[in-house]
């Protein structure tokens, strides 16, 4: 204790009370106080850091103060992280939502996609530099969004937008076509792709608004394609159809593809319809307010891009965008 200065000196500069007005604010929620102390110390130099162990209190803070980024634990007594993020989405849609969890099980990963619509899913233990970078980009996006409100979907539905269904089973495309034409608009064009080549061909021909995709076609892993599609075509909104779940695969699809919904097979028509409607609304809102696209900014991971399939797809997107400009 010899090295510590006198207590009066310390009180002059208590880090937690230096509320710099111009600093962005982040809110951390976890039932373990030690996590909160640790996060506060990590971020105190850069942001105003608010912490709470209680989900309800977090909701109150969100209503009273401008919070740029919300970081929540998943397993908490009273309210799960997914539930908190879901509610936060309605109260403050421009607050970027991050889930920080000790175990990525199916409940939390599926919930993060379908309910929380989270920006990033981070596993504990996290890497200090990585989480700093993630929070920094989330803060930047929140700052650029400001108080922008989601534009109401106007008469957009008359536009002939394109939906691409990626599935070996042609029935999925038939089902989507019937649903969309009957309930949304007969003007929407549905394309079916059964191979990666089909997908690239469809992308060459049309601007795709919504992708409805299986995770695999044959032996090919479609998730790489979905991730790269979002990276190069950020306006395209993707919906995942799948018969099997793998929590860690879903985590990468959140972080690197910002998948909008994950729907189990066999497909329930209502669920799929609602997902497509929501995805189209999202796409249309990007048309009206292009800066909203930032909300769906994806993480770029080496593992995803360092394989032959990925480099082929990256090559396609690069040459394609070069042709366009």
């Amino acid at each position: 204790m010899q090295t510590s200065p006198s207590s009066t000196q310390r009180k002059l500069n208590p880090v937690t009370s230096t509320v710099a007005v111009n600093r962005p604010t982040i809110l951390c929620v976890d039932d373990e106080e030690r996590i909160l102390r640790s996060l506060r110390m990590l971020f105190a130099q850069t942001y105003n850091v608010r912490v709470t162990t209680d989900g309800n209190e977090a909701l109150q803070i969100l209503q009273q103060e401008k919070i740029h980024v919300l970081i929540s634990d998943q397993r908490m007594p009273g309210m799960t992280g997914v539930e908190l993020l879901r509610r936060a989405k309605y109260i403050v849609p421009n607050t970027m939502r991050l889930l920080l969890t000790g175990y990525s099980d199916l409940d939390s990963t599926l919930g993060s996609i379908n309910e929380g619509e989270v920006f990033r899913f981070i596993n504990k233990p996290w890497d200090a530099d990585a989480i700093k970078a993630t929070v920094a980009s989330a803060v930047d996006i929140a700052l650029s969004l400001g108080d922008m409100t989601l534009p109401a979907p106007s008469a957009n539905s008359t536009v002939t937008d394109h939906i691409l269904v990626i599935d070996e089973d042609p029935l999925s495309a038939v089902q989507v076509r019937e649903l969309v034409h009957e309930h949304i608009s007969a003007g929407l064009v549905i394309h079916h792709a059964a191979t990666i080549e089909d997908v690239l061909e469809a992308l060459r021909q049309h601007e795709i608004a919504v992708v409805v995709s299986e995770v695999r076609i044959g032996t090919a892993d479609v998730t790489t394609l979905i991730k790269l599609l979002k990276r190069f075509n950020p306006r395209t909104v993707s919906i995942l159809l799948t018969t099997f779940y793998d929590a860690s695969m879903l985590v990468t699809l959140i972080n690197e593809a910002q998948v909008y919904r994950c729907i189990p097979k066999p497909i329930r028509a209502k669920l799929l319809l609602r997902a497509i409607e929501g995805a189209l609304e999202s796409y249309w809102s990007f048309q009206v307010a292009p800066s909203l696209v930032k909300k769906h900014e994806v993480e770029v991971s080496k593992e995803t891009t360092e394989n032959p399939l990925a480099s082929r797809i990256v090559g396609f997107f690069k040459s394609f965008s070069a042709q366009r400009t």
Partner: peptide, 14 residues
């Protein structure tokens, strides 16, 4: 385990 590991790792970085 991951919860304490989370703050332990972060604290060591700090």
């Amino acid at each position: 385990i991951n919860t304490p590991l989370g703050y332990v790792k972060n604290n060591v970085s700090l």
